[in-house]
Amino acid sequence: MSDKIIENNQVTIMGEVASPLTYSHEVFGEGFYVMDVMVKRLSNSEDRIPLTISERLIDVNQDYTGEFIKVSGQFRSYNRHEEQKNRLVLSVFVRELEFVDEELDGAKTNHILLEGYICKKPIYRKTPLGREIADLLLAVNRPYGKSDYIPCICWGRNARYASGFEVGEHVQLLGRIQSRNYVKKLSEAETETRTAYEVSVSKLECIE
C-alpha cells in the first residue's frame, strides 16, 4: 500500500462521544461499528461527526458516551442506495484512537488534509450579505483503484480562487470537517431533517 495514497487523506479530530457504538458492516471477517463525536468549534458551536471503527480497535460491548476521544484516520465516502437514487454517505474511517482526559480548544480538535482532483465544476455564489462561497467536489484516491468523493466549501478569497478551477485539476487543501442540518422534502406533506458533512477549507493550492 502506497504511503503517498495514505498521506493524501489525513484527519485528526478530538471530541466527546455522543452516541453508543452500532454495528455497520463486515469486511473479510472484520466487523465495523459507527458512533458520533461532538467536536467544538472556536465559536463554541459544535459539529457532530460520524466515525467508523474496527472491532479490533475498541471494545464494541462498551458504551463510551460522554467520554473524550482523539482519533486519526481518513475521511471516506460511499454511495448508499435509497429512494431510487444514490446518497453520498461520509464518515471518518478510524486508524488510531485514544481516550483522553479533556477536550482542547477548537483550533486543535479538528484538522484535515486532502489532496485530490476536482471532479465537477466549482459552484461560486454570494450570500445576501455579500460573502463569497464556492462549493467543490474533490475525488481523493484510495488504494486498489477506489476514490472518496468529498464535498468542500471555500470562503472569501479562497472561494474566488477556487471558482477558476477546471474539472481534473489537482489540488491540495487544509481545513476542518463540519456538519450542518438541512430539511429534505420527501413528499408534499412530509419532510425530514438530515445532516450533511463537508470540509470547510482554510488553505487551498493547485498542484502542478
Results as ranks from 00 to 15, higher is better:
residue 50 P to Y: 03
residue 127 T to M: 10
residue 15 G to I: 09
residue 201 V to A: 00
residue 169 E to P: 06
residue 173 L to S: 11
residue 52 T to E: 07
residue 79 N to A: 14
residue 38 M to T: 15
residue 50 P to D: 05
residue 77 S to T: 15
residue 130 G to L: 08
residue 20 P to Y: 00
residue 131 R to P: 04
residue 111 H to C: 12
residue 175 G to W: 06
residue 12 T to Y: 05
residue 151 P to K: 10
residue 7 E to C: 08
residue 56 R to V: 03
residue 103 E to A: 08
residue 63 D to C: 07
residue 138 L to G: 01
residue 84 Q to P: 09
residue 105 D to W: 04
residue 148 D to H: 01
residue 7 E to A: 14
residue 150 I to A: 01
residue 130 G to M: 14
residue 40 K to C: 02
residue 32 F to H: 09
residue 123 I to C: 03
residue 57 L to K: 05
residue 201 V to F: 00
residue 160 R to Y: 14
residue 67 E to P: 00
residue 201 V to D: 00
residue 95 R to M: 06
residue 86 N to V: 06
residue 195 T to D: 02
residue 121 K to V: 09
residue 71 V to Q: 12
residue 185 K to H: 12
residue 6 I to W: 04
residue 130 G to D: 09
residue 88 L to H: 01
residue 133 I to Q: 13
residue 31 G to A: 07
residue 186 L to I: 12
residue 133 I to H: 14
residue 62 Q to F: 04
residue 21 L to P: 01
residue 199 V to W: 02
residue 14 M to R: 06
residue 120 K to G: 06
residue 107 A to M: 12
residue 206 C to I: 11
residue 52 T to R: 05
residue 142 R to G: 00
residue 164 G to W: 10
residue 102 E to M: 13
residue 118 I to A: 07
residue 113 L to K: 15
residue 72 S to E: 00
residue 128 P to K: 05
residue 190 E to F: 00
residue 90 L to I: 06
residue 183 V to L: 13
residue 129 L to W: 07
residue 49 I to F: 06
residue 194 R to S: 01
residue 150 I to L: 03
residue 194 R to K: 12
residue 172 Q to R: 15
residue 50 P to K: 09
residue 13 I to K: 09
residue 124 Y to N: 14
residue 19 S to D: 08
residue 47 D to K: 04
residue 148 D to I: 01
residue 6 I to T: 12
residue 115 E to L: 01
residue 63 D to M: 02
residue 107 A to I: 10
residue 78 Y to C: 01
residue 125 R to V: 05
residue 179 S to R: 05
residue 58 I to E: 05
residue 3 D to M: 10
residue 88 L to R: 07
residue 84 Q to L: 15
residue 34 V to C: 08
residue 104 L to W: 11
residue 111 H to R: 15
residue 67 E to L: 02
residue 25 H to R: 14
residue 90 L to E: 02
residue 193 T to V: 09
residue 131 R to N: 14
residue 98 E to Q: 14
residue 54 S to D: 03
residue 34 V to Q: 07
residue 62 Q to N: 09
